[in-house]
């Protein structure tokens, strides 16, 4: 089985308060923001590894492969390297300017990558934490004409590896979809809960730690010798014209200090007269 995980380099979401907008609102100032892998993409890597290994013995299933694909500047290799340290096998970096990409272009480029790599499954984060567009997985599935499931909170790979049952959290419960491979799945954060991924190789009694795995030093060192192939975005032969255009950016208004009220009566009165919501 072969899995492809696209990975986006985003500004560290823990430092979101440091974000500044350039003069005229033309773009977000990225200087001083530490680039990190999009957390949802990291969850996609973790979930994919759980499909490809025996979690108890930490042994990978022979013949299986996990490839990471990223679009961006040369520095994005660092983020691919991090995924390789987690356990991915190789990386593809398509060099491009971060500002000359949109979800539609990425999806079309990924469709070409899928043609070349022929994975059984593409696992993506449901969205990137910077643009929050939430489009790539859906457009990609449409372009490939593959079955897809979005916002996966669980995945169960059948023993014959022909289908995946995906759990999706919705209001009032969980919908389960059975996808026939090849397929596209986008994951939500609960996909890295201890028992979210079942592959019928990891014993049912085994419990994963919550979240994406830590990469101990030997894995970091090993990752340095794993291949990352660089190519230009143009080499994929896609039309690089952007369909979505960002016109301007603005920070949300700063939050104002609150007030303390004496009692419920005062609260209700303020909600009525000041907030005018009652």
């Amino acid at each position: 089985m072969k899995i492809l995980v696209p990975l986006k380099r985003t500004a560290d979401p823990d430092n979101a308060n440091k974000i500044k907008i350039g003069a005229g609102g033309a773009k977000i100032e990225t200087t001083g923001l530490e680039p990190k892998a999009n957390p949802f993409d990291e969850y996609a890597v973790e979930a994919s590894l759980r499909l490809l290994e025996n979690g108890q013995t930490k042994v990978r299933i022979a013949g299986d492969k996990l490839t990471i694909a990223s679009f961006g500047p040369k520095e994005a290799a660092t983020n691919i390297r991090q995924a390789l340290a987690m356990g991915a096998d190789d990386g593809l970096l398509f060099l491009s300017d971060d500002n000359a990409l949109d979800g539609d272009l990425i999806a079309r480029a990924l469709a070409k990558v899928v043609e070349q790599q022929m994975p059984d499954l593409v696992v993506l984060g449901k969205q990137a934490v910077d643009g929050d567009s939430n489009q790539v997985g859906q457009i990609l599935a449409e372009l490939l004409q593959w079955p897809s499931a979005t916002f996966a909170m669980s995945m169960e790979l059948s023993a014959d590896k022909k289908t995946v049952i995906v759990g999706r959290e919705v209001d009032g419960g969980v919908i389960k979809l059975r996808l026939t491979l090849p397929a596209v799945i986008t994951v939500d954060l609960r996909i890295v809960a201890p028992k979210s991924v079942v592959n019928h190789v990891t014993p049912a009694t085994f419990t994963y730690p919550d979240g994406a795995r830590f990469t101990p030093l030997p894995m970091i060192i090993k990752a340095k010798s794993k291949p990352i192939v660089e190519a230009s975005l143009a080499s994929l032969g896609v039309d690089t014209a952007l369909k979505s255009k960002y016109l301007s950016f603005a920070l949300p208004p700063a939050r104002k200090g609150g007030v303390k009220v004496k009692d419920v009566a005062e609260l209700v009165q303020k909600l009525r007269t000041e907030a005018k919501v009652l």
Partner: peptide, 15 residues
């Protein structure tokens, strides 16, 4: 080097 940077970020995440 980048090995130390990766280690730093892992230990920071743990701590």
């Amino acid at each position: 080097n980048d090995e130390h940077a990766a280690l730093r970020s892992q230990v920071e995440r743990f701590a």
